[in-house]
Amino acid sequence: MAPAAPITLRTPRLLLRTQAIADFPAYAAFLASPRASGLGGPFDLRAAWGMFCHDQACWHFFGHGALMIEHAETGTCVGQIGINDGPLFPEKELGWLLYAGHEGQGYATEAAQAMRDWAFDTLGVATLVSYVAADNAGSARVAQRLGGTLDASAPRSDPHDRVYRYAR
């Protein structure tokens, strides 16, 4: 895939937009918190910066990457959505995170549906997966609402993750 500039997607309530340096403090705080345990965290500042840069670099290397989830009406950044790829991901992963206080409002589902559909329609991928920590019931519900089905045979970096597969 040729290098691509990050895109912007809109949903009824959300603006999915490129990362800005001003997004890093909230992102790093999330990754330093116990809430990042499902991603292998908590992470220190150096690791958070590397992950933030990875999310942006994926656009150049793979033509997809991460977008920040912004509430369109308030302008509040509530989390991140992305298609992850590279040597740490066995397959293209549809991944999301929400900052504290923004769970349970459908933001992850709305953002992930838009990103999933964009990947199918624009990138032409036939399948995506989400790696969900075994104890992350909220993300499992999001994956199920998106039509993901458990794929016990899918490769995974963490043997304890549940893998939800989305077909075109």
Rank of each mutant, 00 (worst) to 15 (best):
F89T: 02
F89C: 02
P90G: 07
E91T: 00
E91F: 00
E91Y: 01
K92Y: 07
E93C: 07
L94Q: 13
L94D: 08
L94C: 10
G95S: 15
G95V: 06
W96G: 01
W96H: 04
L97A: 07
L97F: 09
L97H: 11
L97V: 05
L98F: 01
L98W: 05
A100V: 10
H102P: 11
E103T: 13
E103R: 08
Q105H: 14
Q105F: 06
Q105K: 15
Q105I: 00
G106C: 05
G106W: 02
A108V: 06
E110V: 05
E110H: 09
A111D: 06
A112P: 04
Q113H: 10
A114G: 01
M115H: 01
D117H: 12
D117E: 13
W118Q: 01
A119S: 14
F120V: 01
F120G: 05
D121N: 15
D121R: 15
D121A: 15
T122S: 12
L123I: 12
L123F: 03
L123W: 12
L123M: 13
L123D: 07
G124W: 01
V125T: 09
A126F: 00
A126Y: 00
T127A: 14
T127S: 15
T127V: 05
L128S: 07
L128D: 06
V129S: 09
V129I: 15
S130R: 13
S130G: 13
Y131V: 04
Y131P: 11
V132W: 08
V132N: 10
V132K: 13
V132F: 08
V132S: 11
A134Y: 14
A134Q: 15
A134P: 05
A134G: 09
D135R: 07
D135K: 12
N136E: 13
N136Y: 08
A137S: 12
G138Q: 15
S139I: 05
S139E: 12
A140T: 04
A140S: 13
R141D: 13
R141P: 04
V142M: 08
V142W: 09
A143W: 13
Q144D: 13
R145K: 15
L146T: 08
G147C: 02
G148M: 09
G148R: 04
T149Y: 03
T149A: 10
